[in-house]
Amino acid sequence: MTPDLPPVASPEAARSRGTGNFTTRILGVAAVATLAATAWLGLVVSPPDVVQGQLVRLIYVHPAVATVCYVGFGLCALASMAWLWPRTRSRRWDALAGASAEVGVVFCGLTLVTGSIWGRASWGVWWTWDARLTLTALLFAVFVGYLGLRRTGGSPEGRARRSAVAAIVCSLVVPVDHEATNWWRTLHQGNTLTKTNPSIHGWQLATMALSFLAFGLLFAWVLIHRYRLELLEDRYETEGLGLALEERRAEGAPPVAPHALTSTPLPADPLASEATAR
């Protein structure tokens, strides 16, 4: 049984009582269609690579997923800045920051997994202390921490403030870590990724471009749903208590008997009279 949501404000939302609408359905269909097309082009149409063989097919997943992950974290930082700026402060920015960070973490995890599979096949190890791998793993850990901070409860305002500052601090880590690992790399072996990566063309290039579109659409679709869910959760937290109180009061109120209308009026609800006295 789903918990009763508080009454919704807009008639559109009242009809669906969910997070979907016409736009998201179009987005969803487009995302699924482009993903299917990417899979078909990537697995059937495009030829295996001269150097990497069948392994090259990972290029239709891994770079797009990684890019989408960066977009998610970047969006989280931007939304947090918008929340902190007094003129643009709105609960919606906080919800967007939370939603984009969460989707970003999922895509960051996918980046690590697909990268690891690729590494196992081409380098022979699941993990190597390459600069980029280390950077991505750190990014994952940092934003998992951010999500942990968001889940700690407290007042919505306080949570939003803490999370906004944390998001900016987290995103600041990215360039620092990136530079650190760049300097680190100069002391150790160079990056093998770019050497074995051939310049691509033809079907390979087209499929790769399509994969970026497909994962971008998927990101937008999931993000919109997650964002609306966040807003609904917010409303449930803030309005749910008031609603529950009203329900309890309605239960406690004396039943309206037919004779009550004609006889002396019942004493007013003490809670209600207290509220009006205030």
């Binding site: 750190l138 850990a141 921490g145 942990g148 901070l149 407290g154 306080g158 500052v165 601090v169 880590v173």
Partner: peptide
Amino acid sequence: IMAAGLRVRETLLPLLILPVVAP
């Protein structure tokens, strides 16, 4: 200070700090 008022601060703080101080 970010984690100070939270009930889960003891467990959350290491997760927040350790990746950040990796550099």
